[in-house]
Amino acid sequence: MTIFPGSARVDTVMGMPVSVDIRTVLPARELTPLIDDAFSWLRWVADTFSPAKEDSQIWRLNHGLTIRQIPELIEVLHRCEELSEATGGWFEHRINGVLDPSGYIKGWALERLSRALCNAGAGDHRINAGGDIRVRGSAAPGKPWRVGIRDPRTDVVRKVLYAHDLGIATSGGAAVVDPRTGERQETLGSVSVIGPDLGVADAYATAMYAMGPTLARRFAADLAEAGAYQTMIVLRDGKEVSTPGISGIAAQARLAG
């Protein structure tokens, strides 16, 4: 099989392994700076938005200190408000008075990076950060990307999809709290959301995990009916519950394979 030359790198950012794999045919003098800039962007996001990092903008907000007027900060907080409303408050970036956009920020950062790579001429790429994945273009000439949805608790691949343009966000590997009680939610195994915007998918996955099985299945059905986002829910006993579109994508994957 013919492959793209491209370039790939794996590094630790935000406390997790992050990989950036570019397959577009570009000279090394262009690829290396692109990947350098990609990881610089992700580190800037971590330094700016981590509520645990002293002197980050979120940390400063939580401690009543002045912040810099950063357009990205305003954008993220505005989107978090919109997503809170869209999920009936189940996605909440402020719990017990503490601001924490972590349920959105990773997906948002990867989505922004993916768009930047496209604008720079690197339209064939895959970005993976702790199981949240964004793919665009082709893995090889004429070939879609092969994307596995992993169970964050067991690392087992639950589904394999093939796609040229897709975002997948999974919630369940890290603590998610019920925004109404502030208590850790553990009634589901994991929630994976597939759709065109990884930041939105990330927030939806977080919200549904917080909802618990009954409300999550209802919300997932509503999302699927709207058409843009599909969901796979893994229950605590290991059983899977998926919206109809997941089966359609998996069937395409089998044909592509």
Score class of each variant (00 low, 15 high):
T2I: 15
T2H: 13
T2V: 14
P5F: 05
G6S: 01
S7G: 15
A8I: 09
D11R: 13
G15Q: 08
G15P: 06
V18S: 03
S19L: 09
R23I: 02
T24K: 02
V25W: 13
L26H: 03
A28M: 14
R29P: 09
E30R: 14
T32W: 13
L34Y: 07
I35V: 13
D36Q: 11
D37R: 12
D37F: 11
F39N: 06
F39D: 07
S40F: 05
L42A: 03
W44M: 12
W44H: 13
T48D: 04
S50V: 00
S50R: 00
P51G: 06
A52T: 14
A52P: 08
S56C: 07
W59E: 08
N62G: 02
H63N: 14
G64R: 04
T66E: 15
I67S: 11
Q69R: 14
L73G: 00
E75M: 13
L77Y: 01
H78Y: 11
R79M: 07
C80V: 11
C80I: 09
C80M: 08
L83E: 10
S84G: 15
S84I: 13
S84A: 15
E85Y: 13
A86V: 05
A86N: 08
G88A: 04
F91A: 03
H93V: 09
D100T: 01
P101T: 06
Y104H: 12
I105D: 12
W108N: 06
L110D: 10
L113H: 00
S114C: 12
S114D: 09
C118I: 15
A122E: 04
N128M: 05
N128F: 05
N128Q: 07
G130Q: 06
G130C: 10
G130H: 07
G131F: 00
D132L: 03
V135E: 00
R136G: 13
R136W: 14
G137R: 07
S138V: 12
A139W: 06
K143R: 15
V147W: 01
G148H: 11
R150G: 09
V156L: 15
V157N: 10
R158C: 12
R158I: 11
K159A: 15
Y162G: 11
Y162L: 12
H164D: 13
H164A: 12
L166A: 08
I168M: 02
A169M: 07
G172S: 08
G172D: 04
A174G: 13
A175H: 12
A175S: 14
V177H: 07
P179Q: 08
T181V: 11
Q185W: 02
T187Q: 08
L188Q: 03
L188E: 01
G189Q: 00
G189K: 00
S192R: 04
D197K: 07
L198N: 02
G199N: 06
Y204T: 05
T206D: 10
M208N: 04
A210F: 06
A210P: 05
M211R: 00
M211S: 00
T214M: 14
R217Y: 01
A220W: 02
L223T: 01
A224L: 11
G227W: 07
A228T: 05
A228L: 09
A228I: 05
Q230K: 03
T231N: 05
T231S: 09
L235I: 04
G238P: 04
V241H: 09
V241W: 10
S242N: 15
P244F: 08
P244Q: 10
I246T: 03
S247Y: 12
A253M: 12
R254E: 14
G257R: 15
